Computed example of a mutant assay.
Amino acid sequence: MQLTVTDDHTRSGWLDQFDPRLRLLTALLFALTTVSLQQTPLLLLVLAASLLSALFTGLTGSLLLKRLLAMEGFMILLLIMLPFSVPGDSLFTLGSFSASTQGLERVLQIVLKANAIVIMLMTLIGTLEPVVLGHALGQLRLPEKLIHLFLFTVRYIGVLFDEYQRLRMAMRARAFVAGSNRHTWRSFGWLIGMLLVRSLERSQRILAAMKCRGFNGRLYLITTEHWQRRDSVILSILSLFFLLLLLSDHLL
């Protein structure tokens, strides 16, 4: 589940010396600040800051490009339609539709904000081990049920994928070839149904095993991480920097 970086798979050791809660709070403040900014130069500044952070962490360019392309593919329809739906000065026309300069500026802002936030999240949170991230969320007093759901999802999503792979292998062993016909869609429907049934059965076995080990509905998060003075200093400095960005955006 951890992001793949460089040759040794991690060069984020300089981040590991800080409390994970600091990384979560920094990512949250960065996202809130970036979303609030409206000036393009400041958005370019935060994008450059996120790219530098990813570079120092050791995230490879190919990994960043792959993740960003997945996000851009999701946003492509919005980015295409927005210039034609925002009123303003006409930039060019396409048939009976007119694209506005204000709409194009809005598209640029959305692209800069989304990329800056995603890159920073990959840098600060994506390089955390899932268990460490769950413990940090618990120390921040987030709802226990939400944390349990996150930890169980991380733990068993690979198990469900393995189950899906076994079912697909069984289908291929029976000479199943996917196509655009009724038999294919019915077969995939049975596949999804069997995956749900087996997931339910496995969840019941897991719950029974946990009850045998004294599970009472609560997971106790044991961690050796301690908030230090340097974490408070860094958080204060970053908060001041984000505040200056917001003030600059308001004054420009």
Rank of each mutant, 00 (worst) to 15 (best):
A49H: 02
S50F: 04
S50K: 09
A54D: 06
L55D: 02
L55R: 11
L55N: 07
T57M: 05
G58D: 04
T60S: 15
T60L: 08
L64M: 14
L64C: 13
L64K: 06
K66R: 15
L69M: 14
L69G: 13
A70F: 14
M71T: 13
G73Q: 12
M75S: 04
I76G: 01
L77R: 09
L77I: 13
L79H: 14
L79F: 15
P83G: 04
S85R: 09
S85K: 10
S85F: 07
V86D: 02
G88Y: 07
D89A: 10
D89W: 10
S90K: 10
L94A: 02
F97D: 05
F97H: 01
S100C: 03
G103M: 00
L104Q: 14
V107D: 03
L108H: 09
I110T: 01
I117N: 01
I117T: 01
V118C: 12
V118A: 15
M120P: 06
L121N: 15
L121Q: 12
T123F: 00
L124A: 08
G126L: 08
T127W: 03
T127C: 03
T127V: 08
T127M: 03
E129P: 02
E129A: 03
E129F: 07
E129N: 11
G134M: 00
H135L: 06
H135M: 07
Q139F: 02
Q139S: 14
Q139A: 15
L140G: 00
L140A: 12
L146I: 05
I147F: 05
F150H: 00
F150M: 05
L151P: 00
L151E: 01
T153I: 03
T153A: 11
T153E: 08
T153M: 12
V154W: 15
V154G: 10
I157K: 01
I157T: 15
G158I: 01
V159N: 07
E163I: 04
E163T: 03
Y164W: 09
Y164V: 06
Q165C: 00
R166E: 13
R166G: 00
L167A: 01
R168N: 03
A170Q: 01
A170K: 02
M171Q: 15
M171H: 11
R174V: 03
A175L: 13
F176S: 00
G179V: 13
G179Q: 13
S180Y: 11
S180G: 00
R182H: 02
R186N: 10
S187V: 08
F188E: 07
G189Q: 02
W190R: 09
